[in-house]
Design a binder for these strands. Structure first.
Length: 405
DNA sequence: TAATCCCGCCAAACA
DNA sequence: TGTTTGGCGGGATTA
């Protein structure tokens, strides 16, 4: 029996017989069904604009990515035109560039020609991640220290390796994307969203970091900033880009946003266990916004226009998805422990998004019947309802990679 | 007030 | 030279 659970850095090639291909197939099934649920029932272009004032959330990259995937993750889709995508999604092309750059960096898309991408789908992800991991491990890294979270229980300083130079990275051949094939002189590519996405993912793949703040990630990914002034400016800019990246990745459940040690609440998903009581895994949305993921938010005053009619009931937590798709080495007590800790920790954090929340407390069961549970997805989804909690102070907002690792 | 991140300007890259 | 691409940061929105 395969085990799906928390872990880091070692997930893509599961040990102890964990079948990566099967995991991916399961994940794809989940993603497909979830994307359908997350898809707004009305045209994105029309929603909101007709009856509601401008709503920033309707324009979020995460939501756009969800809709993008819904649009193209279908049989028979082989190529994607950017203009067509922009038109169909009702956004300007500039936004499509952001989406496709991130999707390309994780292997979902591949650039064919001007204005044209080929759709590789979620099946492209494992190879892309494997390439990223190998590439990251191969690279001649320098070492930085960063305050990162390596477990749910303790913060500690860990050493994170980062590439010694962007040039090293972009010159390395890789099947992941064209970013790695950029010329040395291509300064623009060095700062591309796609490359930044890949480096961001490498932080998780090539280190034992589970959680990292975008601020820290920006500092780590900041190439050459020894000049404090340059560093400050670049960091601010990169944090903005990392927000973009994280929101796109989170819409695919690649990463999740967590609150580190905050005392309480916000918007979130609360699980109701079979016996009707709330279990230990209470999901609380951050006080801060998570654009694009707020399709799970039932607050009328906020994203009413985009909520599907059954949007509230069709939500599942990332954690449940995580429990389904994570490939955890069998018998790894450390990670098992981490998973349990993660379950507790989640009571202080939140996991939600287009692919919705569930309970990690079910992880054990999920590990036993993960494949079957995929088929029961919709039934499980109906168990969960968003619930409002009083907002608490939030700090230590972190991001972690959850798929495959 | 700080965190978040949408928006669109405009320059680089490309055809 | 026109078009495509996408870095970048201002500033609006939200908690």
């Amino acid at each position: 029996m395969r085990q799906y659970g928390g872990g880091k850095g070692q997930g893509i090639v599961g040990r102890h017989g964990c079948d990566l291909v099967e995991v991916v197939v399961v994940m794809i099934s989940i993603l497909r069904s979830c994307v359908k649920m997350a898809m707004p029932s009305s045209e994105p272009k029309e929603s909101g604009s007709r009856h509601f004032p401008y709503c920033r959330k309707e324009k979020s990259l995460g939501l756009l990515c969800t809709n993008f995937l819904s649009l193209y993750d279908k049989d028979g889709v082989e190529t994607i035109g950017l203009d067509e995508a922009a038109t169909r999604l009702g956004v300007e092309r500039r936004r499509i560039y952001d989406i496709v750059n991130v999707l390309e960096s994780v292997g979902i898309l591949a650039r064919m020609a001007k204005n044209r991408y080929s759709w590789k789908g979620f099946r492209g992800i494992p190879q892309a991640l494997q390439d990223l991991k190998e590439e990251g491990l191969r690279e001649n890294y320098s070492t930085l220290e960063v305050n990162a979270k390596v477990s749910d229980d303790e913060d500690e300083k860990v050493s994170i390796s980062i590439a010694s130079s962007q040039d090293d990275k972009i010159n390395r051949s890789s099947s992941v994307s064209s970013f790695s094939k950029a010329s040395k002189t291509n300064n623009r590519k060095e700062k591309s969203l796609g490359l930044l996405t890949q480096n961001f993912i490498k932080l998780f793949l090539c280190s034992n970091v589970e959680l990292i703040s975008l601020d820290d990630a920006a500092k780590i990914l900041l190439g050459d900033a020894h000049d404090p002034s340059i560093r400050r400016n670049n960091s601010a800019a990169k944090v903005r880009r990392l927000y973009d990246i994280s929101n796109v990745l989170s819409s695919m459940n690649f990463v999740e946003k967590r609150q580190g040690s905050l005392p309480s609440g916000g918007w979130g998903i609360r699980e109701k266990s079979e016996n009707g009581s709330e279990n230990a895994f209470v999901l609380n949305e951050s006080k801060k916004r998570v654009f694009g993921t707020e399709i799970t938010n039932t607050s009328f005053k906020r994203s009413k226009a985009l909520l599907p009619k059954d949007g509230c009931s069709n939500q599942m937590s990332k954690t449940q998805l995580q429990a389904h798709v994570k490939c955890e080495p069998m018998g790894n007590e450390v990670h098992k422990s981490n998973l349990q800790q993660d379950s507790r920790q989640s009571s202080k954090g939140y996991r939600f998004g287009p692919f919705a929340p569930v309970s990690v407390s079910r992880a054990g069961a999920a590990e036993k019947n993960n494949v079957k549970q995929v088929h029961d997805w919709e039934n499980l989804a109906a168990t969960y309802r968003p619930e409002y909690h009083n907002q608490g102070i939030m700090y230590d907002l972190m991001w972690s990679l959850i798929i495959f690792f």
